[in-house]
Design a protein around this nucleic acid. Structure first.
Lengths: 220, 220
DNA sequence: TAGATTGTTAATCGATTAACAATC
DNA sequence: TAGATTGTTAATCGATTAACAATC
């Protein structure tokens, strides 16, 4: 384990994919896999996979490859899956509710403790077993329960304010689902944003390019 | 415009962010901006912004900078916002429904034509004005309406099958919200995936790292 | 005109790929 | 043992940053 050297973002972004693919292999009953086989199935080179893994240690065996079970475990450990992190959801509109009801937090190593909203229609109720409290009681709750991550699914107008309140109360990370680039002191909180809009615009670009290429082929 | 040279993925992924930031500047009434000012507000270098934009042409004026309005328009054009692309949603569970009700497709240049599901409870109804048809009628609908993109929000077990049906019916892109890496001939369809799970695992890694650094500081 | 800022070419930096000795 | 495949070092490739002449 030479975990000291700073690991690049590119590698970090690939770790969850490795984890996901290894989980699928494990479910399919695969016991061992070589870097070249894993690379082929993931669209990466064998070299890259070995290089990536070597950031964290030597998990393979020469002449054999990697044991699917233990490599998956190792990567899970690196990702922090067994650290007992916790999360609360801010905002129980359609999106917040959808995530609470469908997202398997526990598979990703998180315990979902509570949700917060301001609407009297939901405050006091439960969504998929998760209690919904009034946003006013956020700080009180955070003071009593150790919360690692706050999921922001509030209207865009409330995003920065609620983000600030989370940061001030000392959460380590913010998982931002609002289409707004919340600004923070990166020393204090880590922000990970899911920007649907950016994703769709990138797709729009790619299919538009295709269309242009096609039309150029016809009339060059 | 030297649109011929292949534009790198890194640049493509930044285009939507430029577009978003320019929209915010426009709303704030900003008329002109220099590459260095834009860079500062986005956390990029001025060099990178000029380099990125130069992939598509010269949109600025020496000694002046960029006009916010027209640069935003140009980037919108590059992204394909005015191409009249269309989309259908597959699956109207919580997530599909949340997206239909909340996501501003039109702001991203898409018209949402219809949704598809198999449950008799929703087939025949409308969600936020969008008609929901039975999945069996997907091919018939696609034959009559030009659809650019299919949004996959079906259960993971149906993901590959529905994706195949979309591809066979000739959609140009698939916007994949299932936590499954659907496999396609990249010559035929462009797949853009939104993997919540990968995003949360990356966040988990980042906050876990922080924790380790902190604990090392205490006991070095 | 003088100052500012672009677009572009060159220099640097980092990430990916290739090669290979070590060894299971 | 022979074959396979790792971990790592070196080579290549690509992306970011720096520099600067052109010019508004």
């Amino acid at each position: 384990m030479k975990r000291n050297t700073k690991v690049s973002t590119a590698v970090i972004r690939r770790l969850p994919r490795y984890y996901r693919h290894l989980s699928e292999l494990q479910e399919a009953g695969t016991v061992r896999i070589s870097s070249s086989a894993l690379g082929k199935s993931m669209g990466l080179t064998a070299s890259q996979i070995r290089q990536d893994l070597s950031c964290f240690g030597g998990f393979g065996q020469q002449g054999y490859g990697y044991k699917v079970d233990s490599l998956k475990e190792e990567i899970g450990e690196i990702l922090g899956i067994h650290r007992g992190h916790t999360v609360v959801v801010l905002g129980t509109g359609n999106l917040g509710r959808a995530i609470i009801e469908n997202f398997r937090f526990s598979s990703n190593g998180f315990r979902l403790l509570a949700a917060f909203d301001v609407s009297p229609r939901v405050v006091g109720s439960r969504i998929a077993g998760v209690p919904v409290y009034h946003a006013d009681s956020l700080e009180g709750f955070l003071a009593e329960h150790p919360v690692s991550v706050g999921l922001l699914a509030v209207p865009i107008s409330a995003a920065q304010e609620m983000g600030d309140r989370l940061a001030n109360a000392g959460v380590a990370g913010i998982w931002n689902f609002t289409n707004y680039e919340i600004a923070f002191d990166p020393q204090r909180v880590v922000v990970e944003s899911v920007h649907f809009s950016d994703s769709l615009l990138a797709l729009n670009y790619m299919i538009s390019q295709r269309e242009e290429e096609r039309s150029e082929e016809e009339s060059p």
